[in-house]
């Protein structure tokens, strides 16, 4: 029967869709697991002993990003490229987290702001929507904001660890970031809310710098900066 045949075909479509979502969910679980591992590695920089071997921690983080790239490579194969936004919600959260981790690694390595291009290279995905699985600009910015609050914590702990120049460098970096964000017309969306939090990070870091300044501990920006 013709109508019946039509509907059989339709049922095929619907089942396929559910299977795709199931597949995506599985890969995303793996991604989340790897992201947690990278986080554990990178967060150990806050510990007194951690300040010594930042490079080796970054190294370890970079290695784990290989696994991330392989997961993401896998993810791309699970659905047609042009349906990115159809399933966006499934991976949005973990992608923001990975953007944060990439930004943190890059900052720890070179004290610069990772560009969106760099993040996509680290993750092995595209910059441009047209080219395929990419990183949405909002997700990139969200990752950058998460890093900012990690840096305010780092400023506090570097003082404890006896590194008095790092807070000043962080302060300059964060101020630049803040100016950058001020250029954006954020609507009342989740990003705006997260951006409001940046001000508190700026303030906290400034307080650390202030504490160092009044004690004359912050004068050596040129000399002892790299410790």
């Amino acid at each position: 029967m013709s109508v019946n045949e039509m509907f059989s075909g339709i049922q095929g479509f619907l089942s396929a869709d559910q299977d795709v979502r199931e597949d995506i969910r599985k890969v995303v679980q793996g991604l989340e697991q790897t992201a947690r591992e990278i986080l554990t590695v990178l967060q150990s920089v806050h510990q007194a002993s951690g300040f010594k071997d930042i490079p080796s921690k970054c190294q370890r983080g970079r290695e784990l990003f290989c696994t991330v790239r392989s997961h993401l490579g896998d993810l791309k194969t699970k659905f047609p490229a042009e349906q990115y936004y159809r399933f966006h919600e499934h991976w949005r959260f973990v992608l923001q987290r990975l953007a944060f981790l990439a930004a943190f690694v890059v900052y720890l390595e070179s004290e610069t702001l990772v560009t969106r291009e760099e993040v996509t290279q680290i993750l092995g995905i595209e910059v441009n929507r047209e080219k395929g699985f990419h990183l949405d600009i909002e997700d990139y910015l969200s990752g950058v904001l998460t890093m900012a609050s990690e840096l305010s914590r780092l400023a506090v702990n570097s003082v404890t660890a006896g590194d008095y120049s790092r807070p000043l460098r962080i302060s300059n970096f964060i101020n630049e970031l803040d100016s950058g964000f001020r250029l954006l017309n954020l609507k009342n969306d989740p990003l705006r809310k997260r951006y409001d939090g940046l001000k508190y990070d700026v303030k906290k870091i400034e307080e650390v710098v202030y504490d160092l300044s009044i004690r004359g501990l912050a004068r050596e920006p040129g000399s002892g900066g790299e410790e």
Binding site: Q47, S49, A161
Partner: peptide, 9 residues
């Protein structure tokens, strides 16, 4: 100054 040595895990 290295007051928190060796504590991480």
């Amino acid at each position: 100054q290295q007051i928190r040595e060796e504590r991480d895990g």
